[in-house]
Design a protein around this nucleic acid. Structure first.
Lengths: 217, 217
DNA sequence: TGTACATCAGTGAACGCGCGTTCACTGATGTAC
DNA sequence: TGTACATCAGTGAACGCGCGTTCACTGATGTAC
């Protein structure tokens, strides 16, 4: 057995990097975290990965292609987190739904660079269909949760899950990008973003008549 | 009388530009509209304004200072539009409130570059206090509208205007930046952003118990 | 009304820098036999 | 197991380019008298 294919971090590498794609994505995320979604260059990512400026061209056509790959992977991680929070709607849809909301903001906070890559990179969905698909899949977690949440309501009063999901998404994204970001552009508010979203979701569900009545009102 | 101080657009100018500050801001807005908030340089703005690359330094310390001035002016225009839509809460607070929501999205749509400058420039509020103040003033229009809207409710059930304003703002901003933007990063949805926000506000106000009952429900 | 002078708001040339991209190349790896 | 060879994934030097910034300068404007 040999460790050549899996060098410990920081070890000397030979002529071939071994996992440059991965290293470039990590470098890109670090640079996004430090300087915003527009704040990295192909050359800089190469330097951070410890290779010559020409090396990235073996893996990506240009900077945007690298960015798109980063964003796609971010959407996949985001989808996984939301799914995990939903946990099949256990113990009940309502509880699980609130957990999804908190998971949304959590992701934006813990992984601001990934959040930026997904929503602030300015990449065209036409140019990167994979990205579009990955984004849809993450959104569908939210939409399915909405469906499950209102499934118990009488059909006539049941709101469209699509509309509901768009409302919740917009609220969560608005809060994340205005009040929960990690950089200097964050706007200070007199409460936590999590509490703010929690309250918004409660009020919204009350408005729909979709909240289980616990003690009247 | 002379027209020297107010040259018709396109006319030949002399050695002095006459209104370079204004011209630079306009150039910046055009470039933001074309290439996003990160998509312009000091040199490019100078070129667009028809002056040498050194000229802007007589008016702005650097690119960020120009950007901040653009954003500050955008906030002022935004505040004016929201105020105009609110129109003192006439004919009634509820009607006026919905008008403010539509005005919000309208601004984001008609002036995507200004919207970008306000919310996606990534400028630090610490570094540009004027910008912070201008943003607060625009926000206060929304907050005052919220106060007026819930003024008729019994005090015990009245929600805090600050929370309410943050909720509405986040929803409007989320919709604007996800679904109503002018560039390729817009996500297509099966309804108009205006209708989406309208519905969200109605449901939210119902949840608060702040909507006037017209025909039961 | 004219003149001298200070100040303002431009010019244009120059600089160093980092970026994107190409190129011929080369070391390492995988595979056919 | 060994060898020849194709392919892969890097190097490093080079290029043209636009940017930010500085500098001595200069034309236009405003003002004191």
């Amino acid at each position: 057995m040999t460790w050549d294919h899996d060098p410990p971090p920081g070890s000397r590498r030979g002529y071939h990097h071994g996992n440059l794609r991965e290293a470039l994505m990590k470098a890109a995320l670090d640079l996004i975290a430090a300087k915003g979604p527009a704040g990295f260059t192909f050359a800089e990512a190469a330097r951070a990965a410890g290779v010559s400026p020409a090396a990235p061209y073996r893996h990506y056509r240009d900077r945007d292609a690298l960015m798109a790959d980063v964003a796609r992977r971010a959407f996949e991680a985001f989808e996984a987190k939301l799914k995990q929070a939903w946990a099949g709607g256990t113990p009940d849809a309502f509880t699980a739904f609130e957990r999804v909301g908190r998971a949304y903001l959590d992701f934006a906070r813990v992984e601001p660079a990934q959040y930026s890559a997904m929503f602030e990179s300015g990449l065209s969905f036409k140019a990167f269909p994979d990205l579009h698909i990955a984004g849809e899949r993450a959104f569908n977690v939210l939409k399915d949760a909405c469906s499950a949440l209102v499934a118990g309501m009488p059909e006539a009063k049941r709101p469209p899950a699509m509309m509901m999901a768009l409302h919740i998404w917009a609220e969560a994204h608005g809060i994340a990008s205005l009040f929960a970001r990690g950089d200097e552009a964050r706007r200070p508010i007199p409460m936590s973003p999590e509490d703010l979203l929690d309250a918004a979701v409660l009020i919204y569900l009350d408005g729909l008549g979709a909240r289980p009545r616990k003690s009247g009102g």
